[in-house]
Nucleic acid binder design. Structure first.
Lengths: 337, 337
DNA sequence: TTGAAAGCGCTAACAG
DNA sequence: CTGTTAGCGCTTTCAA
């Protein structure tokens, strides 16, 4: 990679404006305590020279970087098969941008990467980290805690650390949303409500299952079948469901992707939705929920806002000692239930 | 955000190992020209102190950052509705990681952001940039060229700069792939082959249309209808197509998403695929192509590899003065054609 | 209010 | 081979 052209320094600006480096520095950083005429002169010099502060030099003394890391463990392609992650990223990006922070993206796959990420985080390159720990047994969170930098998790982490330290996270009200979904189904007069779960090594899946149980009470075990948040998983689960309980009249799918798979199988088996079987999803992933046949009734979570909030908490220092923020969900009614 | 704990410096390591800072520096940076026993002593000291180099200090003198920016203009949600971008990102990330580079993600929306990105890039925070310029009239590329840092574009940029400067980009062989697709359809004995285009303000869509024309020769204008790379666009276009030419017997859709929409409409109209109408897509986006009914025959492009290659070119300095690299595509045969 | 001076932690000549 | 030295460009006391 070729060298970038030499850029003007604070020194150069100072010379041009006929002031000291210190004064230029003050102006560049807000200009408090500098008399107006000087401010003006410095501003002009900055303009003329096209001066941009050298971030490395600044960080060296301030020990701040105005950058945060976003860590995503993505051992599976699933992360990429739905727009979930991208939406959070967008929310994060917006918030960071608004606060002049940069986003350093750390994608990990496998063990070696964990060490690398740990080192990077501990290396003081960034002011904080936003991490998405999808799985219950993920070693990443531990590593990051050890790195000792401010961290906010996306989704409720699956572990409880014995240390009693606060774990800051942002999550959707998965359990409450699931309850709403199932209540809706029950309100429709359905009596044999099934649940296709998500991947149960993720807290979101566990929480949604809990919500389902909250409403259904003692569940006929045959009405709960494990999925994995994918359409294929949804298909498989739906087949099994139909096989076990041909009289099932409603399905709460752990997410929209799962629901789309389930819908396909129902159609294939000649069941009419919602007449024979009502189906409800979770997420309200527009490109999916609006495109299914019939359009999907689902539980909406504001994913972009989750990202935004994570960034906001991290930047604020979350000194409020709050540990988790849970965002509400809403029922979006379309045609499938 | 709270301060990170004070970390050991080179000085500290030197003291502990009983050598000079320079020696420690040498060891940390590869250890060439340092006698083994010393190397060992230094290594141990580093280990014991948990020393991690201060990147800011290092950058200050080396003027390198071991970081590159990935710039994505995403005025529309479309970027997030398909996994395309995420896959490229993954390829990029892998390659950068292998070369100990960090990935700074710059998401832009709207004009103000452009200025911000321009400033950042010009500000010498990163060693280079990877840019995804989706649209023909995007002002971003210009801005970036002006920033004067090494840049590789994802997808053939829509403009030709008069400067005669080399523009480095990585793209799929959209035109060739399109030709393969249409030839396949023709080889199936289809005689009324239609094309649903992508958003024609993107070079990929234009190139695929060209490829279509290459094979079909003088096209019946009614057989080309504009889409926008979305399922909804595909539906709309397919309806129009059926309306205009009820006897259409094959469709080349600009991408898999478009094809999925077209399939839906065909089914709705009682056309059998591929018996009545053969359908072929572009991308081979697995979660889509494998889930459609019937599974989609399509043109595969190796998206992750594109990302990887972009990163490789940037890091290599692409001093080979080559301007564009075009990756081959392959036909993936499933059931729809 | 402004300026002078002292580093932040590191690398890179240059000596030895 | 190893150590000494001089900065990289900036912020931040401390005086003036």
């Amino acid at each position: 990679m070729s060298e970038t052209a030499p850029r003007p320094t604070l020194e150069a600006v100072a010379a041009r404006a006929g002031v000291s480096r210190a004064t230029v520095s003050r102006v560049v950083n807000g200009g408090d305590g500098v008399r107006e005429p000087l401010v003006e002169r410095v501003r002009r010099a900055v303009e003329e020279l096209g001066y941009v502060p050298n971030q490395a030099a600044r960080s060296l003394v301030t020990r701040r970087h105005d950058a945060i890391a976003v860590v995503v463990a993505e051992p599976e392609t699933r992360v990429f098969a739905d727009p979930f992650f991208a939406l959070q990223l967008r929310g994060i990006s917006k918030e960071l941008t608004a606060h002049d922070n940069q986003l350093v993206l750390l994608l990990t796959e496998g063990r070696d990467d964990h060490a690398r990420v740990g080192r990077y985080l501990a290396g003081g390159h960034v002011d904080g980290a936003l991490v998405f720990s999808l799985h219950l047994d993920d070693p990443l969170p531990g590593l990051i805690q050890r790195a000792g930098i401010p961290t906010v998790f996306g989704g409720r982490p699956g572990w409880r650390d014995g240390t009693g330290e606060e774990v800051v996270y942002v999550d959707s009200d998965n359990r409450g949303g699931a309850r709403d979904a199932v209540r809706h189904l029950v309100g429709l007069g359905r009596s044999r409500v099934a649940h296709i779960t998500g991947a149960l090594d993720q807290t979101s899946a566990v929480d949604r299952l809990e919500g389902f149980r909250d409403v259904v009470g003692d569940v006929d075990a045959r009405l709960v079948v494990e999925g994995d948040f994918t359409p294929a998983g949804g298909e498989r689960a739906m087949r099994e469901l139909l096989d076990r309980c041909p009289d099932v009249d409603a399905v709460f799918a752990a997410n929209d992707l799962t629901a789309s798979g389930a819908l396909r199988v129902l159609r294939e088996h000649g069941r009419r939705v919602p007449d024979d079987v009502a189906v409800i999803g979770f997420d309200d992933m527009l490109p999916i929920a609006e495109q299914t046949d019939p359009p999907l009734t689902t539980i909406r979570q504001d994913i972009e806002e989750m990202g935004r909030l994570m960034a906001r908490l991290l930047l604020k220092g979350s000194g409020d000692a709050m540990s988790g923020v849970v965002l509400p969900t809403t029922l979006v009614r379309r045609a499938s239930a």
